[in-house]
Design a protein around this nucleic acid. Structure first.
Lengths: 340, 340
DNA sequence: AATGCTCTATTAATCGTTTTCGCATCCAGT
DNA sequence: ACTGGATGCGAAAACGATTAATAGAGCATT
């Protein structure tokens, strides 16, 4: 392994000069600096991250927290898409992404401990259960952090315009003639509340009375629960003609319940999803859904996190959050309702 | 931040003793050691990873290479599932996973450089293009490495029993009465060759003549190319009655081509996928497919990598690889062929 | 010629650990 | 009482980098 010392010896200068030359710091002659940099390159020098971290207290490591209830965060298409975009942006700035966890070598540690142990410069959080004690602890630790879909006091976050998303869905269904619009939401949380708000307010705006039996609480990405709740909706004496799903993936359960009830989508029942997962475009019928702009979300998250990191130590930033607009993707699952 | 020094001061002992006590090394009295460990815990001591890495030359960081042609490795369900399982196993042993990349801070570096810079203890590689120059460079660097689906000389790997997988598919189709069995494979590579081998040999065994026009080369996960090739197969004067797809995801393209040709699955054409992706179980018709045991693959990969890491410096291991059995998941996409 | 200034380059301290080595101390065995 | 081997502990040298302080050289100004 080539170290500063090796380069120093070869160039006949001190280690300090080499360090300065390589980092483009003042205090080294132009000629010397050039020569140093050249030999460094020719020797294939690479700084030692550990040594740098130890000395500078900066690791350029970002922790990624993608936990799900069933610990399958990485399988969550939506979050992974956001992560991809986040990753690209962060890498441009020289950061590495490390997956966080609660077990470092047999014994269990907390997220915060893992964070401190690895000396992470910041944390990216996208998950389901934001009320987790460990997350709160992490949020309180003063480590730069950005969250998706949920805001912790003192930290910035990025989220889709959920109110508008559901509103767009309801309006679209209404435009095509639906008035009996059911809504199966995810578990109760910030995002869900916003969506419910959009649901209620848009119904009101359109002059459609809110019917409590048309609203069900499922869980995000839970296919079987969503399937069951969809079946329940279909059993109502006067079932909805259009159903909004918690998300595309859970929506698969909804579609399956409808099939099993002997009904067809969209001829008998219309369905609208949420997320805009890639693979949904390839299955039949193509799901009409509210698309979350994962690329923009990821980039915004990166930006906010970088800003926080740069600002560390100075007065706290006003923790600005960013709301990302959503769009409706017109698929094949919404048509005029049958007369009934 | 609590350091060994702080603990030493509080306990009235030397830093050396503290270090030894905490690491359960001999050379410290039982009493002293106990006291040291207790105060360490009470002070909330956590070792500094950078310092440890610098001193010991071990980082407990594993690089994860999940690149795809279109750089969407994380979106690849199959690989991500394997990664999940790998991750759990590695974390148990105290390792952290870091996503690898080619850009660290503006300038582009190679995988190998990234690896060296961060001082990774090992690398997990799962991707498509194994002939990438940079990968070869990485494989030659003598860093512990494990690959999925491809074997580099000198390194262990884990892969599904691809020969048997396709063989199972062909046999299953044959058992249900198919003799015109088409095969759309992924791009030519190790895995594909194995599968083709299984295809040919099983046909032969069953006494079905191999027909070149029934074999097409697509690319893994490529929906639109697979769609086109499926359409081509259907246009044959005597099209196959059952088609094996490169993988479940690409298979969506196949299904879509069949629909667009005005045919139905499975009534008109039977289809068999490969992978056993989770979400496939939720769409209709449920895809009959060859399931890869992602959990076992991930665990095996972890095991092999750990063994290599432990063995570092000693004589090279015989680079044992592991073949993981596959199973056929009976879905709804294969039935008796129509007479024709 | 003395003074002051700018520039370059070096010395040395430091980050938090691990680990080798040496010095006491203590006890058993003679 | 003396030797010899454990045993417990500390001093100090690394690991590879950054950075403040410092010293020397060169040049211009008075």
């Amino acid at each position: 392994m080539v170290t500063l010392k090796d380069i120093a010896k070869k160039c006949g200068v001190s280690v300090a000069s080499v360090s300065k030359a390589i980092n483009h710091m003042p205090g080294v002659g132009t000629q010397t600096a050039k020569k140093i940099r050249e030999t460094a390159k020719s020797m294939g020098y690479l700084p030692n991250a550990a040594a740098q971290a130890l000395k500078t207290n900066r690791t350029f490591i970002i922790g990624v927290l993608l936990e799900d209830d069933d610990s399958h965060g990485l399988l969550h298409q939506f979050f992974v898409s956001v992560l991809e975009s986040f990753k690209i942006k962060m890498e441009e700035q020289g950061y590495d992404l490390m997956l966080m966890n609660r077990t470092v070598g047999k014994r269990t540690i907390s997220y915060l401990e893992h964070c401190r142990y690895s000396n992470m410069d910041g944390v990216f959080v996208a998950c389901i259960d934001f009320s987790d004690k460990e997350l709160l602890e992490l949020a309180d630790a003063g480590i730069p952090m950005v969250t998706i879909d949920h805001t912790y006091p003192g930290h910035p976050s990025v989220y889709s315009d959920n109110v508008d998303g559901i509103s767009k869905a309801v309006r679209y269904a209404h435009k095509l003639g639906h008035t009996r619009i059911g809504f199966i939401s995810g578990a109760l949380a910030g995002v869900t509340n916003k969506r419910f708000e959009g649901y209620q307010s848009t119904l009101k705006e359109l002059g459609i009375p809110y019917r409590d039996e048309y609203y069900k609480v499922s869980r995000y990405r839970d296919v079987s629960l969503t399937k069951k709740l969809t079946a329940d909706l279909l059993k109502l004496p006067q079932p909805p003609t259009c159903i909004l799903m918690p998300d595309d993936y859970a929506g698969l359960g909804g579609l399956s319940a409808i099939r099993e009830a002997g009904l067809r989508v969209p001829e008998d029942i219309s369905v609208i999803g949420f997320d805009g997962l890639e693979f949904m475009a390839h299955i039949s019928p193509r799901l009409t859904t509210i698309n979350q702009d994962t690329q923009q979300i990821g980039e915004a998250a990166a930006e906010l996190l970088l800003k926080q990191i740069d600002n560390k130590g100075k007065e706290a930033l006003p923790a600005k959050s960013i709301k990302v607009p959503v769009t409706l993707i017109e698929g094949e699952t919404v048509v005029l309702p049958k007369k009934g």
